[in-house]
Design a protein around this nucleic acid. Structure first.
Lengths: 221, 221
DNA sequence: AGCGGGCTTTCAGGTTGCCTTCATCAGGGA
DNA sequence: TCCCTGATGAAGGCAACCTGAAAGCCCGCT
């Protein structure tokens, strides 16, 4: 799971790397064509960002050779040339996408997302805190890999904690957030649901802060 | 094997059509969004060229609904807007490529070739999840090898689940996606169809998530 | 146009399991 | 120790869901 950037200009490398890493990708870099081709052949590389103006082996040549060995890995080409004829030539040489310098890093990220979406299947959005994972689109919880069945209310309550790990929520806040009730001193629903969650997830995952509320335990404090 | 062009401007339609047909593609055209969506769902369509300014159903909305049902068909978006923010929005909405009007038909052809090259090898006309296979072109389902006949509605409903295994869909989402209805609290069609699918496929293949919706069971959760 | 058959939708009755409340128990702090 | 806050098991009520059957609709056929 990595994105390979083949580019020799220091400045571009550093800002592309920063953007991709902030977006959660692992990034490997090569500044020359021959080396870049070798790395691009590794099955660990999911996507290639390729500058055409390279020392060693030209970008076009790299692309042609890469396509012979790995026809399906997505390649996004960076170039200074913007004539229609150049674009056509590059797309036909095997580029999946094409960006003209100077470009916005946000647009590059969007194109990366678009290419990864088609190649790998989209991963559902999930929240994880210390061995506890909540699959939001699948309404499922996992504790250390094992699936745990949760009712709609239990799920809603737990997701509040996972969205704000470590934060303390009072009973009346939770009543408001999860149940939509105004404060109702007479009910102990929240307590009951906390109890149920503890039985399903393990008692130590939700801590009581006496007189204040509850908090998701991230670690052991 | 056809390319669908969803575009309402006569002039663009005719020169895009000429270009694509000269390149050897079969072309079908729709000039309005609702109709376009229906055609785009046909497994016969290999690629969609989509104008965003449409009557009926906006291009963005078409793209969103199409992605839920056919996540992998390549879509090339045509638009007049060229701000970086627009490009990003469209790529994230599910566009695979993006062209700004006015554009060269040769570049469009190059982009079509680039998209067909990648989608070609992994375009399966069948979806499989845990012993359940859906033959998209034959409108047939197979459960552990045995064929099961499905009506059009049953098929459409099941295909939503198979395109997004593990994801929960609410009754109103399904009503919207499969039936095209707005929310209608009074009907229980969805329940009836889920029931029918269970009878045909085996009860445990579709799980109820009480108070939330339904999910295709991938494995045991 | 009339007809037949399958697909779709509605309806009604039955079933399930979630939600809430209540009563009782545990445990920490003064 | 006593009191107060929180924990937990049990049970009734009820909304959500399931499903068989019948009515309605659409489409192809004659």
């Amino acid at each position: 799971m990595a994105i390979l950037v083949v580019e020799d200009e220091e400045g571009i490398v550093s800002f592309v790397r920063r953007g991709l890493e902030n977006a959660g990708h692992r990034v490997v870099v090569s500044s020359d064509g021959i080396d870049g081709l070798v790395m691009a052949l590794s099955p660990d590389v999911d996507l290639v960002v390729l500058d055409l103006g390279l020392p060693g082996l030209s970008g076009e040549e790299l692309l042609r050779r890469l396509r012979l060995r790995r026809p399906s890995v997505p390649v996004i080409v960076l170039t200074a040339k913007d004539a229609v004829a150049d674009r056509i030539a590059n797309l036909d040489a095997g580029a999946d996408d094409y960006m003209v310098k100077p470009f916005s890093v946000n647009e590059l990220l969007a194109r990366v997302r678009a290419r990864l979406r088609t190649s790998g299947q989209d991963r559902a959005d999930a929240l994880t805190v210390g061995g506890l994972t909540l699959d939001l689109s699948g309404h499922t919880a996992f504790v250390d890999g094992a699936t745990v069945a949760l009712s709609a209310r239990e799920f809603a309550l737990l997701s509040v904690f996972l969205h704000h790990p470590g934060q303390v929520f009072s009973q009346s806040q939770l009543l408001d957030l999860v149940w939509g009730y105004e404060f109702d001193g007479a009910s102990n629903v929240v307590e009951v649901y906390i109890s149920q969650l503890r039985r399903k997830l393990g008692a130590e995952r939700i801590r009581t802060v006496r007189g204040v509320g509850y908090r998701l335990s991230d670690g052991d404090r």
